[in-house]
Nucleic acid binder design. Structure first.
Lengths: 201, 201, 201, 201
DNA sequence: TATGAATGAGCTTTCATTCAT
DNA sequence: CATGAATGAAAGCTCATTCAT
């Protein structure tokens, strides 16, 4: 189905990807009309359906594509093995920042998928081999936490970090701040703060 | 306009309030149809518009009502003055739990309003005198933080707590767990954990 | 059905009659909602239907009532018998002016009924024993036209007068001029003008 | 917006124009449902809104279109300059008849617009550069009236003619007579009659 | 008699999807 | 491959009418 899509000129592909990421991320699935999408991507109505069959098919494609793309980047930057826990989190932060530079709405889109409530949208999604969030969990699980044992459960702490990450990201993008830099600054500060706390004798 | 509404039998009022809180919280503004609302509230289509003029008017009413109701409860339970910071947070948690027992979707609704992206929905809302979240901030600002100075900024820590609260809440309600109890348990654990950490000499 | 209506206080009757005459005349049948009617008449929704069963029944009642009322007035003022044609027309004009003073929208309503296009409205109307317009035709037919034979057909001329009357009336009421006086002035001028023309040697 | 419309096959354009002219003219704006329109034009519901955005937009379009079309025809047939007054009126009559052959409801529609009372309909209309009725007034003003000075005011007489024209037209179309021919016959007779009267020494 | 809350059919409008070109 | 005209189901909303009080 979607293979045909990759025969298009890269520039057109990118227009079609970015239009969807941005619109779905900002407005949600239901509030994004196919009219808006084709206007944003500067293509005709028919073409959207030619390549993706349906709005839901397009949504699903974007999710697959961006998941794969992000995992490629993450795998390249963050090799398996024992990392110091906070070093690892800072690697994540760097990778996220780099990805945001390429696909500005990347994180907001992935987060909006988690918050998506539309049944049609949700049931269109393929379970990916590995989600971006599963990748995080895997690396965090094998990381070296021994210096921070005063924070009882690593799992609890990771989920706390996850909530904070999602919260900051949402605010950053809502405020239309210069995305990646602002996000990096605020999340970096939280990591510093926690590390100091957890490491104090 | 809405005064007429309060002449209805309390039981009918509650059906009409809960149906909206629950549906808007779970599906968002746009994905909630007036058909679903009237089915949920067990009223006719016309009646919804008789009392609220429009879907947006109904949405706005729910926000006003629940904001007022929650502030009443919070003001009753949590008096101004110096509280120990973590004692205060536990008071909040108790109040939230009580409110969830009355209006199960209360918190999720208020949070969904913050995440709402639909222009029609947003522009329908009246700015309340005080938001629920402003109440939290005011009490936290005057609380006694002196025992926990090892956590550098109170503001940062409060926002961290806020993100965690929202994250847990969303998961709890998504999983359709027995709302208030599960929420209380998990959030309570996080508070305990942080307090131990911040208070350790 | 409508007898009950006449047991009401005269003042309330008049409110209910005038509200309808005015609203139907200005907005037409379909564009006049029962909400507007009851607001205009200062009665409750239920009462309208109590007395008239339906919107169409109310419309029909107004037509009957005002037809009867106008014919009473016309019969009182304009006795059968030979009148000079233009004298007769001036008698009509005086009667119309008097009726407009009592029921300002009277003429506009009767005219709007002629222009009414709504099927529901039209099929609700009872054929009255005699219409106001038939009364005119009858008197005109027996009037003395001998002084004005230079105007070939009396019928044609009468219909010309009718068209002019309707046209002036519509403009007068549309312009919200002080109804009856303005109407009397303009229609009087036309009669004078025609009489001079038709009577010139 | 409406440019797209003119790319359609002429035959389809005409179906869409005539359906509206006829329905609005006969039933008025409010009593004409979009269901009736699309049934009359033999198109789908969506298409009407694809081309005209709203019912009011469609109404406005019809008014613009038919005004422009009629003025084109009138300008072609009736050149500026001194015409004998009654000759001019007969030219008008011929032009009207021709236009009625093309767009049978043309005159009734334009007249119904003048009588229209619906706010939505009225506020949708663009003020045209020149109305059809203004064209009439301009030609009549410059015509040669010197042979008919016994009719005091040309203005009064023109408005009388206008009322008569509207009245006849309405009856002709109401009776579903063979429109243009019947209209031509009756209006012609009135013109003849008045000319004889006004010209008699 | 009088009220107005309640109903639901019907209206205008939106929008994902199809298909002839 | 590409277009955008065309479709119709479903949405939000209106309003004549009913009925419990």
């Amino acid at each position: 189905m979607n293979e045909k899509f990759f025969d298009l000129k890269k520039e057109k592909q990118d227009r079609m990807i970015n239009a969807g990421l941005q619109l779905f991320a900002v407005n949600g699935y239901r509030n994004t009309s196919t009219d808006e999408i084709v206007a944003g991507a500067q293509i005709s109505k028919g073409l959207l359906f030619h390549y993706f069959n349906s709005k839901a098919g397009y949504y699903s494609f974007l999710y697959d594509y961006i998941t794969r793309y992000a995992l490629l980047e993450l795998n390249t930057r963050i090799k398996p093995g024992k990392h110091d826990f906070f070093e690892l989190e800072r690697d994540f932060l760097r990778a996220e920042t780099a990805l945001m530079d390429q696909y500005p709405s990347y994180l907001l889109f992935l987060d909006s998928v988690r918050l998506e409530q539309d049944k049609e949208a949700l049931s269109s999604l393929n379970q990916p081999e590995q989600t971006v969030f599963a990748f995080y969990a895997a690396r965090e699980a094998e990381s070296d936490y021994s210096a921070y044992l005063r924070m009882d459960s690593r799992d609890t702490f990771c989920s706390v970090l996850g909530y904070v990450k999602a919260g900051i990201m949402r605010e950053v993008i809502r405020d239309k701040a210069r995305g990646s830099a602002e996000y990096q600054r605020r999340m970096g500060a939280v990591l510093d703060s926690f590390q100091r706390l957890a490491a104090s004798l």
